[in-house]
Design a protein around this nucleic acid. Structure first.
Length: 1188
RNA sequence: GCCGGUGUGGCGGAAUGGUAGACGCGAUUGACUCAAAAUCAAUUAAGACUUGUGCUUGUGGGGGUUCGAGUCCCUUCACCGGUACCA
């Protein structure tokens, strides 16, 4: 037996993981090895490593263990590489399971929870984790929830917490309300079989929506987060940029506001739809329709949310009998209600554009509402005209083009059977009801034609015929235009399918049809000449394109049109043009400014003053230089104002930034003849609107005190006199704070830009008793009273039989110490996600009794450098925690914006479940769990850790396999045997692993002659050691976290060590008891292995270290790049990129020499034979490729 | 529908545009053993045959870029995850 075990000699040389793991866990705890020493932060960099706050569910299984293992490897590795690591652990200990257990077993939830925590802590230790337990945080303990309550009050003071009555999500199994984020497809996130119901309740909310934009924008800062999580959050926040437009209800004072992101389709509106719950419905419904509307509303109410949201359901609705006036077209549009419109998104009202929205299309089809085509996917040539022939028309042109068509087909070799029919008859046919024949004209010349006719016995399908473009106009892309035109015509005429046939010879045509969504079908008619039949289902055209049939906006792209249409709708009377680039506008601007100057003089402003203040501007009588200097560029504008009806240019206004949040108005001017029509007011309003849209929040302007009318106008518009803000000595200064809800309601405005978020405020009330009480109370009159900080925490009842807060009168009623008034406590508790929204801050200062955390400490230790947790919290916890961080920053408790620097979402652990009959996520309810206790008992924590890390990338899902885990135990056993000298055929050896460097020249056989290969094995092993250090280090780098390959590299090293042990080298050295190389290999291996399998590494190190050093004191090994470099390399010889052979070459060889060597290769020569080499590519130290 | 991701041996999975299948599991064979387990050694992508230091094929399918593609681009299919009457 080996004699070298420097410390105790174990009875058996077997790897007894049970004892070893226990021994080290005890040792680490006793030595307080994992407690963070803040004093060391002066010298060392900090590393905050964290796992998502776990719920103490009691027994852990391997599915739970994965996240702790991943995080632990990182923490231990960071400690070895010189960081002072903060690696805390705590428990998110409020929640429903404790209440259920309390009911079932009659114990207090606190006792049940604490017991679970103890059990879980034990199991975490068993897995070999390295937590600083001194900082343990448990959210259900008063020491913690005191500060949760404190923070809630801070939110309340800041106006971020409010109470509101609204329809909320109710889970009958949880017996409480849920946040939107906790509803999954209409079901409770905890009870996947329980449908969430809507209830009207008065509940507490946190104003997360105030941070919607920042939460979205700052996702860009999170460069070390997985894309997937960021996308999920962005989708959840759901920003959409659109417009609100107001429509007057005919014969009524009411106005309906709709929200749309497709204002470019506004000319295609054929109806409006309100949500059935919309408050206006009652007011506008006509007598005739009352019964129908009531009936429909009733039906809607009976539907569950999930039914209402199921997408395949047919769209239904009811007509209110009223009409709205489209402000763009002044046409009457019917107002409907339909349950597909959500009352709580946008304005609860939408415009129906069936031609360009799939949902509206279905709705229109069902209720026979008109479909108007207003967006074309092609930019139409303005000179193209499409003329539909009428029976009364002179049909000469039509005859001519049909002649050409038949002629063309004949030449192409296609017989046209109907050619014998007289044209008159043919055309007659096309002109019948719901059929049509069109001529396409370019500059009045016919370039082609197309016809449609109804398919017999099918009211919903039509057939496209005689699509023909004269040869000279082909290849101009007209064909697509023709097709689109016909399809849209068919849609407008309530066809749902369109057919066409083609001859196989017309290959390009067929390709085009397929590209445009047609597919081949079996014959639909009896045309013997056609051999390809195709059809397409007609639907709404939803892509962006170019406007058509939109008076005044035709030809604009969708994007352009959206802006223009808002601008247009902002005022009925005026158009604002900000386009100094165009020469014609430059001229107008110049004229307006000239007029402005003379108008100042007319109003009695001194010539001297005008000269003084406008000297730059009017120096050369040319305002343009000045204009461009002051108003051209980002966040600046110079608007020329035009009257909509007369198209006259009537005035101007300039806007430029004063500072980041304030803008200044200059040169507000209106020509004399247009004054007195309240246009000035509109210009002012428009300017404010523009400023708000460009994220300004204040506006300034100055005015000469002689301009009384102007001053009155400013005051009327809410401007207030302010101190001087510029150098105009003689002027009066005004200022106004801008806010979205502060824009003057514009008399003539019917459209405005609107940004909408899907994110709703966070509902935090829970009707539970095992949660943090909301620290508020109510007076008898309902007035809200906050509990003073000194009286916190508001504790949960401890020994009461009646744990339910709402029915526990002793708890509920209390007397205000100061006023003696009888108060009633708020009986709702907070969502447990509140607890986990700030626990990571508490870890920085867990024992502080005076405040939630110390600002300096928190700023020193945060943000968290590596956060590890499940993807299921991609939205919930991570979004809430980000919101808390930002809100607390604004409250003044923090000074950073984002809590989690780097995020890793670990994949789940799956296993075959007999119950499910397939491989599913490991979980108790699926009956496919491997318990930590059992597994660690049988195979050890180190094996478990290794297997979980080896089975796949941290972010991938892995399948648990006992065989796989056994394999890792086998690997550890192999290491054990090498280190203890108990491998096959070994003799007692003495190792000394304390030497941490070894160079080639120090190798014991370095000087031996290499002829009989002596010394080769030790060199190979040394190289392998350095290589392993290199690749394991790279694999542990945070950009990679490739633990599976790191372990593979270590396995390779061990395999290499076994080979070495069988080599002549080793036999030779064994006789001399020289184990230099082997010792160095073990030294390196144990240090590399430590983060992965800490117990066995620590144990072997202790056994073998003659200095009695400890592995945790060791640094991460470094490698010698020179030791990895080879003099030789394998030159791969390729022909046309295919491997032929490989030869060993010296690295020093030149390209030419390599080529020579390669050409001499016999295999290459046989392959090459008589082919000639066209080109040779040499990749240095790698390969040579001959192109033949 | 939209957004993200993934497709490589019997299985889990490796491969900075440069020898596809590292490492492990499983399987097969041999050594040790009375035997089994454990261990050690070896084989293990597929195919046909002339059984070779040989040949052909091969990273979901089709195309492209390149001297060279698992890797880059286009297209298509399949699966997984998220999300949805969001106007």
């Amino acid at each position: 037996m080996p004699e070298y075990s420097s410390q105790e000699q174990t009875q058996d040389s077997n790897y007894n993981f049970g004892n070893i793991e226990k021994k080290w866990q005890t040792f680490w705890k006793a030595q307080k090895l994992f407690e963070t020493d803040l004093d060391k932060l002066n010298k060392k960099k900090k590393f905050y490593s964290l796992v998502m706050f776990p719920y103490p569910s009691g027994d852990l299984h391997m599915g739970h263990a994965r996240v702790y293992t991943i995080s632990d490897v990182i923490s231990r590795y960071k400690r070895m590489t010189g960081y002072e690591v903060l690696n805390p652990m705590g428990f998110d200990a409020f929640g429903l399971p404790a209440e259920n257990a309390a009911i079932e077993r009659g114990i207090h939830p606190a006792d049940w929870t604490e017991k679970n925590i103890e059990r879980m802590r034990e199991q975490l230790v068993k897995m070999g984790t390295s937590y600083d337990w001194k900082r343990e945080v448990v959210s259900c303990r008063p020491e913690y929830y005191k500060w949760t309550q404190y923070l809630f009050l801070k939110f309340y003071e800041k106006g971020l917490a409010y109470k509101k009555e609204s329809p909320v999500n109710w889970c009958k199994d949880c017996e409480t309300v849920l946040a939107n984020e906790q509803v999954e497809n209409g079901y409770c996130w905890r009870h996947s079989n329980t449908l969430v119901q809507k209830k009207n309740l008065s509940q507490w909310f946190l104003k997360i929506t105030d941070y919607a934009e920042e939460l979205l924008q700052d996702l860009q800062k999170l460069t070390k987060w997985p894309e997937q999580v960021k996308t999920m959050q962005a989708n959840w926040i759901g920003k959409s940029e659109g417009a609100e437009i107001d429509l007057k209800v005919e014969n009524s004072a009411e106005t309906i506001t709709v929200y749309t992101t497709r204002l470019d389709t506004v000319f295609g509106v054929s109806y409006l739809v309100l949500a059935p719950e919309h408050p206006l419905v009652k007011k506008i419904v006509t007598e005739n329709q009352k019964a129908e509307i009531e009936n429909y509303k009733q039906k809607t109410q009976q539907l569950s949310d999930i039914d209402r949201q199921s997408e395949d359901r047919e769209k239904t609705g009811a007509f209110t009998g009223s009409y709205a006036i489209d402000p763009y077209t002044q046409t009457k549009i019917p107002i409907w209600i339909a349950d597909y419109v959500l009352a709580n998104y946008g304005t609860g009202a939408v415009m129906g554009v069936p031609a360009h929205d799939l949902r509206d299309f279905k709705f229109a089809q069902k209720y026979n509402l008109p479909i108007k085509w207003v967006i074309s996917s092609q930019k139409l040539n303005k000179n193209i005209k499409i003329e539909k022939l009428k029976a009364s028309d002179n049909l000469i042109e039509a005859k001519k083009i049909l002649e050409e068509y038949f002629d063309f087909r004949e030449k192409a070799g296609i017989k046209v059977s109907v050619a014998n029919k007289p044209f008159e008859e043919l055309i007659e046919e096309f002109l019948a009801d719901r059929n049509g024949f069109w001529l396409f004209k370019l500059n009045e010349k016919v370039i082609g034609c197309v016809a449609v006719h109804k398919i017999e016995n099918n009211d919903l399908a039509c057939e496209m015929k005689r699509l023909f473009i004269k040869p000279e106009y082909q290849r101009n892309g007209y064909a697509k235009t023709f097709l689109e035109f016909i399809e849209r015509w068919a849609v407008e005429n309530n066809y749902t399918e369109i057919f066409l046939d083609s001859h196989q010879i017309l290959e390009t045509a067929i390709k085009m049809y397929i590209k445009l969504g047609y597919h081949e079908i079996k014959a639909y008619n009896h045309n013997p000449d056609a051999n390809i039949w195709m059809k397409k289902k007609l639907n709404a055209l939803v892509q962006y394109g170019y406007l058509i049939n939109s008076d005044g906006f035709n030809g604009l792209s969708s994007e352009e049109a959206k802006t223009k249409l808002i601008e247009y709708g902002f005022s009925n009377n005026l158009t604002f043009i900000n386009d100094l680039e165009k020469p014609e506008y430059k001229k107008i601007a110049q004229d307006l400014l000239t007029e402005y100057v003379s108008s100042l003089l007319e109003q009695g402003v001194d010539q001297e003053l005008v000269n003084k203040y406008l000297k730059d501007e009017i120096a050369d009588g040319n305002h343009l230089t000045w204009l461009e200097k002051e108003f051209a560029g980002d966040k600046k504008a110079f608007f020329i104002v035009q009257e909509k009806i007369s198209h006259k240019f009537i005035g101007c206004i300039g806007i430029r930034p004063l500072n980041e949040k304030a803008g200044e108005l200059k040169r507000l001017f209106l020509k004399k003849e247009f004054r007195g029509k309240s246009y000035a007011q509109e210009i002012m309003d428009y300017s404010q609107y523009w400023l708000l849209n460009n994220s300004f929040s204040e506006v300034f302007l100055d005015c000469h005190h002689k301009q009384l009318a102007a001053i009155n106008l400013y005051k009327k518009s809410g401007f207030q006199l302010t101190e001087r803000y510029n150098n105009n000595a003689d002027d009066t200064f005004f200022k106004k704070i801008l806010a979205e809800n502060n824009i003057p309601s514009l008399k003539n405005s019917f459209a405005r830009k609107k940004i909408q978020y899907r994110l709703r405020d966070w509902l935090i009330s829970r009707q539970r008793y095992w949660g943090t009480p909301i620290p508020l109370a109510y007076k008898e009159n309902g007035e809200i009273v906050t509990i003073p900080e000194a009286d916190l925490p508001v504790k949960l009842p401890v020994n009461s039989k009646d744990l339910k807060l709402a029915s526990n009168d002793d708890w509920k009623y209390f007397t205000d110490k100061k006023t003696g008034e009888q108060l009633i406590r708020e009986t709702d508790t907070m969502d447990t996600f509140i607890c986990s929204s700030w626990y990571f801050l508490r870890f920085a200062d867990a024992l502080n009794q005076d405040k939630p955390f110390d600002l300096d400490l928190v700023n020193k230790l945060l943000p968290i450098d590596q956060y590890v947790g499940g993807i299921e919290h991609a939205i919930l916890h991570l979004l809430y925690a980000r919101f808390f961080t930002k809100a607390l920053r604004d409250i003044g408790l923090l000074s950073f914006d984002e809590p989690f620097e780097r995020l890793l979402s670990q994949g789940m652990v799956t296993m075959y479940s007999a119950k499910e009959g397939k491989t599913v996520k490991m979980s108790k309810s699926k009956g496919n769990v491997v318990g930590i206790d059992e597994f660690v008992y049988e195979y050890g924590a180190d094996s478990a850790r290794l297997f979980m890390l080896f089975a796949g990338s941290p972010s991938d899902e892995i399948e648990w396999s006992v065989e796989g885990a056994k394999g890792q135990l086998r690997f550890l056993n192999r290491i054990w045997r090498i280190c203890t000298g108990s491998f096959e055929g070994s003799t007692p050896i003495s190792l000394n692993i304390d030497k941490i460097d070894l160079t080639v020249s120090e190798l014991p056989l370095a000087k031996a002659s290499s002829e009989n290969k002596i010394g080769l094995a030790e060199k190979t092993l040394l190289k392998q050691i350095h290589r392993t250090i290199k690749s394991v280090s790279e694999d542990l780098h945070e950009e990679r976290y490739s633990f599976n390959t790191a372990i593979a590299r270590m396995t390779e090293l061990v395999n290499e060590m076994y080979k070495y042990l069988q080599s002549e080298d080793f036999k030779l050295l064994n006789e001399k008891s020289d184990y230099t190389v082997l010792s160095f290999a073990i030294n390196s291996l144990l240090r590399l292995l430590y983060p992965f399998a800490p117990h066995i590494s620590a144990e072997l190190w202790e056994k073998l270290s003659k200095n009695r050093s400890n592995l945790h004191e060791q640094n991460w090994p470094s490698f010698d790049p020179a030791a990895i470099l080879d003099n030789d390399f394998e030159l791969v010889i390729q022909i046309n990129g295919k491997r032929i052979d490989a030869i060993t070459c010296a690295k020093s060889l030149s390209k030419e020499e390599l080529e020579k060597l390669a050409l001499n290769n016999s295999k290459l020569q046989t392959k090459l034979k008589d082919q000639t080499i066209k080109k040779t590519i040499v990749v240095p130290s790698r390969l040579i490729n001959f192109v033949v």
